[in-house]
Design a protein around this nucleic acid. Sequence first.
DNA 1: GATGAATGAGCGTTCATTCAT
DNA 2: AATGAATGAACGCTCATTCAT
Lengths: 191, 191, 191, 191
Amino acid sequence: MRLKDETKREAILKATMVLINTYGLAHTSMAKIAKEARVSPATIYIYFDNKDHLLVSLYIEVKREMNRAILDSLDEDIEIHEAFRLMWENLYAYYLAYPDHFVFAEQFCNAPIVDSIQKDAVEDFFTPFRQLIDRGQKEGVLKNAPMDLLVAFAFHPLTQLAKQHVKEGIAMDDDDLESAFSCAWDAVAIL
Amino acid sequence: MRLKDETKREAILKATMVLINTYGLAHTSMAKIAKEARVSPATIYIYFDNKDHLLVSLYIEVKREMNRAILDSLDEDIEIHEAFRLMWENLYAYYLAYPDHFVFAEQFCNAPIVDSIQKDAVEDFFTPFRQLIDRGQKEGVLKNAPMDLLVAFAFHPLTQLAKQHVKEGIAMDDDDLESAFSCAWDAVAIL
Amino acid sequence: MRLKDETKREAILKATMVLINTYGLAHTSMAKIAKEARVSPATIYIYFDNKDHLLVSLYIEVKREMNRAILDSLDEDIEIHEAFRLMWENLYAYYLAYPDHFVFAEQFCNAPIVDSIQKDAVEDFFTPFRQLIDRGQKEGVLKNAPMDLLVAFAFHPLTQLAKQHVKEGIAMDDDDLESAFSCAWDAVAIL
Amino acid sequence: MRLKDETKREAILKATMVLINTYGLAHTSMAKIAKEARVSPATIYIYFDNKDHLLVSLYIEVKREMNRAILDSLDEDIEIHEAFRLMWENLYAYYLAYPDHFVFAEQFCNAPIVDSIQKDAVEDFFTPFRQLIDRGQKEGVLKNAPMDLLVAFAFHPLTQLAKQHVKEGIAMDDDDLESAFSCAWDAVAIL
DNA sequence: GATGAATGAGCGTTCATTCAT
DNA sequence: AATGAATGAACGCTCATTCAT
């Protein structure tokens, strides 16, 4: 009996992401994924129950890796502003290092299929943000607005900028990045 | 005869948006659109060259209407902060009034198909924003950051909030809206 | 707009029966049916909802035609023995004329798919037999056994003989047929 | 080791019969059989060359067991009528005891796959009937009709009644059974 | 002997599009 | 202009069978 081949699973996931980013969710078939991953269509079903399960698994894994990347080097008792900046830079670095990850995630999370995921499978992605913001509000450093609102201003524009960066080749130099961080901080901080 | 035709065209576009918002780009076929619009599949091809053309047409029309809505009551020589606020409120009002429009737009603009649109067909959507920001920078009211960066902070979070509002039923009251506007303004303004 | 083509429907049904009789229910695919009927696989779905519906439709039509054939020339006030003989001969003539019909029917009615048919869609096939037997019992000509029992003896052996006739080339001459009818009559009649 | 093997072979055969009776020849795959028998798909191929071989083996074994059951307690020099009755009752008892056996056999023997069996592998099933009938004709007790004809009348209706019994829950009490036997006897005997 | 992984071919069905009226 | 019929290609998935352990 052969053992399940982890590289095969990875190849399938990678192929799926590449094709979805290139041709879109609507034009990515199991046959094309199989060909791109150099396996038989039937093999995909050894690793994933069905197409939806494959897509959702990919999304969850991508989100999980993003999460891990953002928390890198983050210390519990770090100062708010510093922590905020670290996460911001981690996220941007991740976007640059794995542009296909968030291009995929953005397409996926705006399609109805995302609704089939039970919230808490991905929710923890934003947990560190939320904890940080919570602490910042208690310390009187951050604005006293609803959590979702602050998260939206703190990190969502960065995603948008990264998307432009990747898709349209609009580069951001260090100055731009500095400006962007200032905007984000001014948006959420009590000045 | 002319009037009847326009009705049919609108029915097709509406049906397309409904199905895409409900089932996604990947699961919206011409046959289903035809059935939802109560026309024959062949009839769709009288009004649109092919499926891509139909989708792109829908996207452009939606973007055009958004644009029109945002500019509503906007005077050329209005003060920056006031203009900014007016557009913000117009956009939010539009999101509430036509939630399916921007849910569709968000799904579409994150799919690769959007790349097939020549930029200027939709670009003008942000033109008034850009002109406003340009003026604000010259008057020394707005930060001197790249245009795209300021746009991203000024309006993108609102889209994100509206999405949560629509998809997850997370309501925003007047206070929240006021807070959100403050965040947006603080993000882009020289304080 | 083209009109639905009755000959196309018939070609699909005929092709289905031929393939099922030749290769069996288990090896008759929609693609093969389409090829045999010289239509596109998709065309089959214009005339039948799905494969099951196609098979069931074929079975019901075959049973209906059998029914019609058996009742041929049957008069209401004919004498029991005479009526019995007429139906018997009609059935045998039908078997000889349309051997593929009952070969198909025998395969189909022994497969679980037959259970998906609501009884009364086919039930009427045996109705004239039943009425005849009912009358025969009242007149004291036929044995006073349960209906199903008499039907089983009166007509089922004939099906079995016809099957051998068709499948194994075991011919029955006029004498054999006469003998067979005698057996059937002796089985059910009060002597 | 030997014992364990036989168990596995039996499990595979039993699973095959159960699935075919439940879902039909057309919807019984090797994978499903393996799962039902709690073995690996590959294991089936240790005991049977291929799917056809498995099915045919099952059919032959079922027929062989039927044969054995019918001959139970049958004495060579028993009187015709008595022997006839004994076999009849044996067969009926077998149908009641192993309904799945003959439900399977009926489905299988009406499918074209049965043609791939060399006749003599199963033929002997009816041998005792045939010998009995042969003797009966010589003794002038049974009608002088072709063998197949008498067999068809003597035993085939019973199969049909048993099928109704099993599939539709139409019960037969002792009186019915007595009636049925009378019909069968009257059909074939010289009265 | 026994297994689960692996496969290319084929499954039932739907696709985007065109045809004929 | 408008339709439902018609299609070959493609869809997601399962098939019978073999491989590697």
